[in-house]
Simulated scan of single mutants.
Amino acid sequence: MTEPNPLATWPTGRLLSVAARLTERSWEQVLAGMGLTHAGLIALHVLTEGPLTQRGLARRCRVTDQTISRTVDRLVTAGHAERTVDEVDRRKVLVSITAAGAAVHARATRAEREDPVLLGAVEDYEGLRRQLVQLIAAIGLDED
């Protein structure tokens, strides 16, 4: 006779918290192998929608200007993003994703779904995503 899994007795909040911490730790290792950080991946994800000023990027990523500056510096150094002068308003500098940045973003997106240690181990990945979106929306995170 097999013993019941003690995890099944944990409160849902504890399950979510532990799952988030363990997933984040594993995810950071996967991203590091690609030369990315979690912050860098978030910035690349936002930049797939088009170039932004650093302030606009910071706002969309929900971080401070100083944080995004360091993140963009690392992305530029790695060749994943570039800064260019805005042709319309030459006082502005725009941050854009590069081809290398788009490629590493695509690799990271695939890894999230396919890596058996990460969310690839989840039986219904899309169902989990829908439920997480629903939970976050219900709690009150406003998206721009």
Results as ranks from 00 to 15, higher is better:
T2M: 08
N5M: 13
A8N: 11
A8P: 01
A8M: 10
T9A: 14
R14C: 03
A19G: 09
A20D: 05
A20S: 07
R25S: 08
R25H: 07
S26R: 08
S26F: 00
W27G: 03
E28L: 03
V30I: 13
V30F: 05
L31Q: 04
L31P: 05
M34P: 01
G35R: 14
L36A: 04
T37P: 00
L41W: 11
I42K: 09
I42C: 05
H45A: 15
T48S: 15
E49G: 15
G50S: 14
P51K: 12
Q54F: 03
R55H: 02
G56H: 07
A58G: 14
C61Y: 13
C61S: 15
R62H: 12
T64W: 06
R70C: 03
V72K: 12
V72P: 10
D73R: 13
R74M: 09
T77W: 02
D86W: 05
E87Y: 12
V93H: 07
V93K: 07
L94N: 09
S96K: 14
S96H: 12
I97E: 12
A99D: 15
A99K: 15
A100F: 06
A100T: 08
A100Y: 05
A100K: 14
A103F: 12
A106N: 07
A108T: 01
A108K: 00
A108R: 00
A108N: 05
T109Q: 08
T109F: 05
A111L: 10
E112I: 04
E114A: 11
D115G: 03
V117G: 02
V117C: 02
L118Q: 03
L118N: 02
Y125M: 00
E126V: 10
G127R: 11
R129T: 02
Q131G: 01
L135V: 04
L135A: 06
I136R: 05
A137Y: 01
L141Y: 04
